[in-house]
Design a protein around this nucleic acid. Structure first.
Lengths: 231, 231
DNA sequence: GTCTATAAACCGATAGAC
DNA sequence: GTCTATCGGTTTATAGAC
C-alpha cells in the first residue's frame, strides 16, 4: 500500500517540521506556510491530516509528550539499586539527577521535544496545560514515592516543593539559554559540554543536600575550573 | 498644556494595556487591535507614539524593566546588616530570598512587569535578550559580590550557578502556575497566599543550606501543614 | 491524498481630514 | 494628537480538479 506509506510520510514530516518550529517560536510565531515549506508539503495537507493549525499543534505536543525524557528508566534503576545507607541513597540520587539534567540539556534525541513541552508549560492554555499535567503526573508520583521511601524524615509537602524546584531549574537552564549565555559573556547560541556537565553536577549536588542527605561522594567537575562564570 | 497631558495619558494607557496583554500571550499572540481596544485608543495612536508594534513592545519591556523587582533594596539591607557570624549571615540571606520570592509571586505592583520580562527571557530574540541581560547584570553582579563576601569558601563559579538556580526556581513558580496548580489538583488560576508563603520559605531555606551556611533559625510555615501537596 | 486556486478574515501600517 | 478610511500583504481554511 504505497499510498498509505506516502500519506504517513507526509503526516510525519509535518509533525516533525511543525514541532521544531513551534518549539523555537511558539504557536503564534509560526505560520502554516512556514511549516509546509519546511516539510515539503502543501497547505491543504495540514487541513487534511490535522483539521486545522491548532490540531497540528496538539499533535506535536502529543508526539513530544510520548517521547520526552521522563524519569521512569532512571527510577527503575534507582529502585533496583535499593540503597541501604543514607550515603548510598545520596550517591544514587545524585547520579540520577545529574543524568536527568544532562539528558535534558544535551539529549540524544531531537531537543525540540523538551523545548516544545516546556514552552507549552509557560504558554499554558487551559486544555494543553491539563494534558501536560496528566502526562507528567505518573512520573511525578513515582518520584514522590521514591523520595518518601529513601529519604528519612521527609514530609509529603516538602517532597512536592522539592520536585517543583528541580523542574524549575531544569526548565530555566533549558529555556533561558540566550540570556544565560549573555550574562556569561558568551556569544554561542548553545551551551558547551563543559557547562552542561558543571550545571548538571551543581543542581544534582544541591538537590541531594537540601534533602538532608549526606553530601554525595561521587564528584563531577569542579565549578571553579569553569572559566567565564565570574563577572 | 492639556494637549500634552492627553497625549501622555494615551501613550501610558497604551503601554499599560500592551504590557498586560504581551505578558499574558506573548508578542505574536496579541494584535495591535487588541491593544488599542483595551486601551480605548485607535490604531494610528500606536504608530504615532511608538512607530510600530515592535516599538511598543520594546517600550513595554523597558517600562517593566525600570519598575521590576530587583534585589537592590534588599541588598543594601543585607550589606547594612553586615552579619558577623555564619548563622547571622544565614538568617539575613534567608529573609532576603524569602522576601524576594514572595514579592515576585504576590507583588504589590502589577504582576505583568515580572511576567513580561520572564516571558521575554524565554522568547529571547537576540536584541531583546541582550537588553534584558544588560539590565539584570548590575543586580546580578552586586548579588555576586555580596555572596563572595559573606559566604566563606564560596568560589565564583559556584556563585554564578547558585544565582541561576535561584532565578530558575522563581521563574518557574511565576510562569508555570497553571501546570503547577493542575499537578496540585487545584482549580484556581493563581496561587493562594499560603502556598506562596510556603514556597518562598522552602526556596529560601534550600538556597541558604546549599551555600554551606547553617540552617536558618528564622522559620516560615512548615510545608507539611500545607494541604493538597501530596498526590 | 495531493494539488492549485481562491475565499474570507485579519494583520500592521499609512494617508489625510480635523 | 487623534480620528476614519483604506492600502497592501498575510493569515487560516476551503473548494474542486486530478
Amino acid at each position: 500500500m504505497p499510498q498509505t506509506e506516502t500519506a504517513a510520510d507526509t503526516k510525519l514530516s509535518l509533525i516533525l517540521a511543525a514541532g521544531e518550529l513551534f518549539a523555537e517560536r511558539g504557536l503564534d510565531g509560526v505560520s502554516v506556510r512556514d511549516i509546509v515549506g519546511k516539510a515539503g508539503a502543501t497547505l491543504s495537507a495540514v487541513n487534511y491530516h490535522f483539521g486545522s493549525k491548532s490540531g497540528l499543534y496538539l499533535e506535536t505536543i502529543r508526539y513530544a509528550l510520548e517521547r520526552h525524557i521522563n524519569a521512569e528508566d532512571a527510577m527503575t534503576l534507582l529502585s533496583e539499586a535499593n540503597p541501604s545507607s543514607p550515603q548510598e541513597a545520596a550517591d544514587v540520587l545524585y547520579r540520577l539527577i545529574r543524568r536527568f539534567c544532562r539528558t535534558y540539556l544535551a539529549p540524544d534525541h531531537p531537543q525540540w521535544y523538551e523545548r516544545l513541552i516546556n514552552r507549552a508549560v509557560v504558554d499554558a492554555s487551559d486544555d494543553v496545560s491539563a494534558a501536560i499535567a496528566e502526562v507528567l503526573r505518573p512520573t511525578d508520583d513515582a518520584l514522590h514515592r521514591l523520595l518518601l521511601e529513601h529519604v528519612p524524615g521527609l514530609d509529603p509537602g516538602s517532597a512536592g516543593l522539592w520536585r517543583m524546584c528541580l523542574s524549575g531549574q531544569i526548565h530555566y537552564f533549558l529555556m533561558a539559554r540566550r540570556v544565560i549565555n549573555r550574562l556569561l559573556d558568551r556569544s554561542e547560541e548553545e551551551y558547551d559540554e563543559e557547562f552542561i556537565e558543571t550545571a548538571a553536577s551543581h543542581v544534582a549536588r544541591n538537590m541531594v543536600v537540601v534533602l538532608g542527605l549526606p553530601s554525595p561522594t561521587v564528584q563531577g567537575p569542579r565549578p571553579n575550573e569553569l572559566g567565564g562564570l565570574q563577572p
